[in-house]
Computed example of a mutant assay.
Amino acid sequence: MKLKTILAIIILALGTQSCSSTDQDNPELNELLLACQTTDPINELQWLADLDAKYDEQSNMYRIRIVEFEKTGYIMIEDPASSSPMQTIFDCRGDVAFDTDLLDVSYNDFMKNIRTIKVLKTKNWP
């Protein structure tokens, strides 16, 4: 009987340690961005690093943040000078979300119902 209890405790202890540090550090981010599985999206996702470099060079003010809409994560690059803000909302693959995942969603509905998960970068943002 004692042996079974000890084995059960060991199995439980090993099971809780098997989670990656990403899961433990920010479980909400991981849950929402399963396709990304990264704790540093700007440096680990090449498409986002490229966009960040482009905006850094061309814009005086912008912000990059991870938002949640209907339990899915999206990456937004907000630039007040952007003439088409719908084109600056991306899924984790780097596709424009309103061209793929959000075809049936209005931009206003999206903006009204998002929740900021994490701000990744700001440049001169108020």
Score class of each variant (00 low, 15 high):
69 F>Q: 01
91 D>T: 15
114 I>L: 08
16 T>F: 10
23 D>Y: 15
5 T>V: 12
76 M>W: 06
12 L>S: 12
34 L>D: 05
45 L>P: 00
110 F>W: 05
20 S>P: 01
80 P>D: 11
89 I>G: 03
51 L>Y: 07
81 A>H: 05
9 I>P: 00
66 I>E: 13
78 E>Y: 09
104 D>R: 06
94 G>F: 08
46 Q>K: 14
123 K>E: 04
96 V>C: 06
111 M>I: 13
24 Q>L: 15
6 I>Q: 10
92 C>Q: 08
33 L>D: 02
17 Q>H: 01
63 R>W: 01
105 V>N: 04
111 M>H: 02
54 K>M: 04
59 S>A: 14
9 I>R: 09
81 A>N: 13
20 S>E: 05
18 S>L: 12
22 T>N: 13
36 C>M: 13
59 S>L: 08
105 V>R: 04
47 W>E: 08
125 W>I: 08
9 I>C: 08
110 F>M: 05
3 L>G: 00
18 S>A: 14
120 L>T: 03
4 K>C: 04
22 T>Y: 13
73 G>R: 02
27 P>T: 08
80 P>F: 08
51 L>I: 06
67 V>I: 12
33 L>E: 01
55 Y>Q: 11
42 I>M: 02
111 M>E: 13
102 L>I: 03
118 K>S: 13
114 I>N: 01
121 K>F: 07
